[in-house]
Amino acid sequence: MKIPIATLNQLDQAAFVRLLGGVYEHSPWMAERCYAQQPFAERAALLQAMREVLAAATEAEQLALIRAHPDLAGKAALRGELTAESTQEQAGAGLAQLTPAEFARFTELNTAYTTRFGFPFIMAVKNASKDQILAGFEQRITHTPTAEFAMALEQINRIAAFRIDDLIE
């Protein structure tokens, strides 16, 4: 059930962090830092505040946030270790129903990508197909590390936007 932005603005910090702590994967510090920027006039203002918190974070914090994300169709998914949000997003993209050949390709690309960049491939997979995700992998693995770091942060912000849309009216 979505809550109105006015209700969000009335939450104490602990409740605010409980509600929004999973918007950025395993990184409740994002919600903690965003809390002080209340009140938010609308959902877009909340998302902008979260984007600003991420932009102001240190490079080490940004890297830790990127690394907090699971591989797409990876071992964590097989073991049932994904967050509820990631499970739903990956399943919606068809990643829970891969053929053995598709799973092998995702595994190969996950390994190559992580070896090249030092962090997992991040893509907002909501409303994407497994073929679009594979095409993204294949295109982005040719990026420079600096460009891909920036792309990972942008994709994380897109994921956050989807998650905020699911939580806030």
Rank of each mutant, 00 (worst) to 15 (best):
E61S: 14
A68D: 10
G22K: 07
Y35D: 00
Q48V: 00
E59N: 15
I164E: 05
I164G: 06
D71F: 09
E89D: 13
V53P: 02
G21D: 07
L47H: 09
A57S: 11
G118T: 14
T144M: 11
T107S: 12
G22T: 03
T146Q: 13
T144R: 11
E25H: 11
L19F: 06
E102H: 13
V23P: 04
I133D: 00
E42W: 07
L153W: 13
L63P: 09
A60H: 12
P70R: 14
T58V: 14
A68Y: 10
V23S: 00
L47S: 08
F119K: 12
H69C: 02
A73C: 05
L46E: 08
I122C: 02
R33L: 04
T58H: 09
Q90V: 01
T146R: 11
A96I: 10
M151I: 15
Q139Y: 15
E52N: 03
F119P: 13
R163I: 08
L46K: 04
N127D: 15
L19S: 06
I122S: 00
F121H: 07
W29Y: 10
A73G: 07
I164C: 05
L82K: 02
T146P: 03
D71P: 02
A160C: 14
E32D: 06
F103P: 04
R116M: 04
G74I: 13
K75M: 03
E52I: 00
R33A: 07
Q132N: 04
I156L: 12
A135L: 14
E52V: 00
A76L: 10
I122P: 03
R51F: 08
Q97P: 06
Q155F: 15
D131C: 10
A44G: 01
L78H: 07
I133V: 02
L153E: 14
Q139I: 08
A76F: 07
R67I: 12
L98E: 12
G22C: 07
A56V: 01
L63A: 05
R51G: 08
E81P: 12
A104C: 10
P28V: 12
L109A: 02
G22W: 06
T111S: 09
F103K: 06
P120E: 02
L46W: 12
H26T: 09
L78C: 05
P28N: 08
E108C: 09
D131N: 10
L134G: 05
Q155A: 08
M151T: 15
H26Q: 12
A55C: 11
A73E: 01
Q139T: 06
E52F: 00
M151Q: 15
A73Q: 01
E108T: 10
L82M: 02
F119H: 15
E61L: 14
P39Y: 12
K130C: 07
I133S: 04
Y24T: 11
G118R: 12
Y24V: 15
L95K: 04
E61H: 14
R163F: 01
L72W: 01
G74M: 01
A161T: 08
T115R: 11
A49S: 06
Q62D: 09
R158C: 14
A56W: 05
I66G: 08
A150R: 15
L47R: 05
K75A: 03
M30K: 05
L20V: 01
R116V: 13
T114C: 06
R79G: 07
H143I: 06
A161Y: 11
A55R: 12
A45V: 00
V53Y: 02
K75Y: 03
I141K: 07
A45T: 05
K126I: 03
L82W: 01
A49E: 01
I159H: 04
V23R: 00
